[in-house]
Nucleic acid binder design. Structure first.
Lengths: 209, 209
DNA sequence: TACAAAATTAAACAAGTGTTTAATTTAAAC
DNA sequence: GTTTAAATTAAACACTTGTTTAATTTTGTA
């Protein structure tokens, strides 16, 4: 196995792997599939990454490394709490939407009992994200603009879950909402779905029963 | 291949398959895994269901057949729209939660490009569910208790997505929320998570901006 | 008891899996 | 130009995959 850093070739392999994993799942994608699509020899995956499992690990780190940073920057900005929440939602969606399909893989494959060890990096990421969200919400609660009886850890499932569920039922929603082209579908996410989630979270945070 | 109806043995196989599929994914589970766990010969799966793919199909039909009925019954009940929505949420969660892990499989595996053909039954189910939800919401809108600018098809992603996302990150939330036993975890879903979703949807539906 | 259908089995099938090997080519350094 | 390390390759490795076969056992019926 060569140097641990990512070179051009490794990135090329990662991106092909991401595409195939997101289309056919981790188990459903063979190294030969990846090699063929990336036009490399099947031995190169083991040569560069060590194993298929470690390829997945590299992919996750490759894709998630800058999200943490962006979230932390958001905390420092001079914005009202509700605007921070809206920006956080937007950040999540654009980030996830721009990155091939890795988040779909994470959402899925990383929860299976088989892959508990690969989970570590992902768990740390999630804990960090939750902390960022927590500080925003608490700021809003202290300012008296957010209600205090919301369960903060359950807000992320609502944000991400809504998005993922929409994404996972792509074919269904393309059909129901008449999103015939890829552009229409992506625009719908960028505008309507994002707005729906923001509207939902805002209502949850400020609505007095 | 014998009779198409389900006998005791077929159900036993279905339930083992459900367990393993939900733990390790469809591709990650072999017929030999299923056969061993169900204590049957590996040929029996092909004998009873024809193929692994058709086994999955049978499993989905087996698990979803009564959900449609229960939803339609809910429509007929004499309840306020918001109570119907709350009951619908509760129905979804208990139904999904009681059924091993098939919904997790559906959520995932049925969205991959590989399995488009198996999708049909599932798509019909989703369309029916959406219609039921739509009629409840519109009733509320006509009565003037629900706002009229919500995008109805996006409500299901928020309900189910929140639940699934929580479920998929089980290990993470067990950790964060100190749900050390299986009972604690299930109770949390039954009470707090359900309430969170109901609270969220209610806020979305009645909150005036 | 005898017969036929259904259920069950072990074995084999061909194809695909991730990984390793050892040989060869390419690139870089001296 | 020679030497050394890295990159790339085809072939083989042992193993698992879903499915089928053909033989055997079990079950139900007349």
């Amino acid at each position: 196995m060569p140097n641990i850093e990512l070179n051009e070739k490794k990135i090329q392999i990662l991106e092909v792997a991401e595409k195939l994993f997101s289309e056919k799942g981790f188990e459903g994608t063979s190294i030969r599939n990846i090699a063929k699509e990336a036009k490399i020899n099947i031995a190169m995956v083991s040569y560069y990454f060590g194993s298929k499992e470690r390829l997945l690990e590299s992919l996750i780190i490759y894709r998630t490394s800058d999200l943490k940073l962006k979230l932390e920057n958001l905390l420092e900005e001079d914005l009202e709490p509700i605007d921070k929440v809206n920006k956080l939602i937007e950040l999540y969606i654009t980030k996830i939407n721009c990155n091939g399909g890795i988040f779909r893989i994470m959402h899925f494959e990383l929860t299976s009992k088989k892959r508990e060890k690969t989970l570590n990096h992902f768990t740390e990421l999630k804990k960090g994200n939750l902390k960022s969200l927590e500080s925003i919400i608490k700021e809003g609660q202290n300012k008296g603009v957010f209600r205090k009886d919301v369960i903060i850890p359950l807000i992320t499932p609502t944000i991400l879950g809504t998005f993922f569920h929409f994404h996972m039922n792509k074919i269904f929603f393309e059909n129901v909402l008449n999103l015939n082209t890829e552009t229409l579908y992506n625009d719908y996410i960028k505008t309507n779905l994002t707005k729906h989630i923001q509207q939902t979270i805002k209502a949850l945070l400020v609505y007095e029963n």
